[in-house]
């Protein structure tokens, strides 16, 4: 027995040694001539049908159209962000390292200070560092577009999902914070601008992940005659979409195309086009236009928008015209609710 044990241990050591030596001989690959990017996804991972998948699409498009190469990683835990960013940065071979999602802010703050010569970008939040380009959105603009769609849709006749002769639309935000208030303000402005007769209700869930409470609030709005309801409330929004589906009214999704959740009731979605954002961040670096600080993106950059889903063709035509006005800077969408009424008055829309 003892001999056998010794033999197996020796065998194990020999195997490990063989492996290590084999590896040592292989060496490291040759330096790439192409520009090289890295991306650290959010913990949801690929397949989330939202931020991560969209960011990945942007990377693949940049690979094809801008001729870059990239490495990617899907963290399993928040605790991994810092070491993953550090390992990428340590190689010093990446032209840009991209962080997806607000929960990487802590880690990126630390790592960016440790590697002052490395360029970083973060999407959907702001990290204040001289070597980080933060990409955030002019949230009010996407509120404006879906608000305009809602305002025009509620005036339609002969659609069973529209409550006749009421013309009330609604929006439910996740939390009463500046970012969501800007979405709500844009929505009210868009609805009223496109259809001065419309009445807009708004409310906040107070949580990002409380679908039950959101459903309750949605039902209360539907009781009052709301027939188009935007859910800008993260996971809570799923409850509102469910309510609209059960009562057969229209719901509007947020961030990505949520049409698959209720194909007959999702009118459109207020899209955050993370793919375009990522593509733009890479393009900026390649053109030598890397800009640290806050980069605000909106309709004109193609970083915000709406999806067509069930929107009738005539409304698409009207909304595209309005969106073009916002993109060109002719219309400046108010970003807080208090500013909406004065803004409408100034435009003579009241």
């Amino acid at each position: 027995m003892r001999k056998a044990r010794k033999f197996s241990v020796l065998l194990g050591i020999a195997l490990i040694a063989a492996m290590v030596m084999g590896i040592g001989a292989s060496g490291v690959g040759t330096a790439a001539a192409k520009p090289r990017m890295a991306i650290v996804f959010a913990t949801g991972g690929l397949g989330d049908k939202s931020f991560n998948d969209s960011a990945y699409d942007g990377m693949k498009r940049a690979e094809k159209e801008l001729g870059i190469e990239f490495d990617k990683v899907e963290p399993q835990a928040v605790a991994e962000y810092e070491s993953l960013l550090t390992r990428f940065a340590q190689t010093r071979k990446y032209d840009l390292i991209i962080s997806i999602g607000f929960d990487q802010a802590d880690a990126l703050q630390t790592v960016s200070a440790r590697f002052p010569n490395q360029k970083f970008a973060i999407v959907d939040t702001v990290v204040d560092a001289p070597n980080v380009a933060s990409y955030a959105y002019r949230e009010a603009e996407r509120g404006f577009v879906v608000g305009a769609i809602a305002g025009l849709m509620t005036a339609k006749k002969g659609d069973p999902r529209i409550v006749a002769d009421k013309q009330i639309v609604g929006v439910i935000g996740g939390m009463d914070i500046p970012l969501i208030r800007a979405n709500v303000a844009g929505y009210i402005a868009g609805a009223r601008y496109a259809n001065p007769k419309v009445q807009v209700k708004h409310a906040y869930v107070g949580h990002w992940a409380d679908p039950a409470k959101c459903k309750e609030m949605a039902n209360a709005m539907l009781d009052e005659g709301v027939d188009v309801l935007w859910l800008a409330a993260g996971r809570s929004g799923l409850g509102g979409i469910k309510a609209a589906e059960e009562r057969n009214r229209y719901a509007i999704g947020a961030d990505s195309d949520q049409g698959y959740l209720a194909p007959n009731n999702i009118l459109t979605n207020g899209m955050k086009l993370v793919d375009n954002t990522v593509y733009m961040a890479i393009d900026a670096v390649l053109k030598g236009k890397f800009t640290p600080g806050v980069n605000l993106l909106g309709l004109s950059e193609g970083a915000l928008g709406y999806s067509r889903n069930l929107v009738p063709a005539d409304i698409i035509a009207q909304v595209d015209k309005l969106a073009a006005k916002v993109a060109s800077g002719e219309l400046k969408v108010p970003d807080d609710i208090d500013k909406v009424e004065p803004w409408l008055k100034a435009l003579g829309k009241q």
């Binding site: 991972g45 490495d71 990683v73 070491s83 993953l84 390992r87």
Partner: peptide, 15 residues
């Protein structure tokens, strides 16, 4: 876990 990070980062092995 730690080596797995590098495997994912630099060898492109999926998680």
């Amino acid at each position: 876990q730690s080596g797995g990070q590098s495997m994912q980062l630099f060898a492109g092995i999926p998680m």
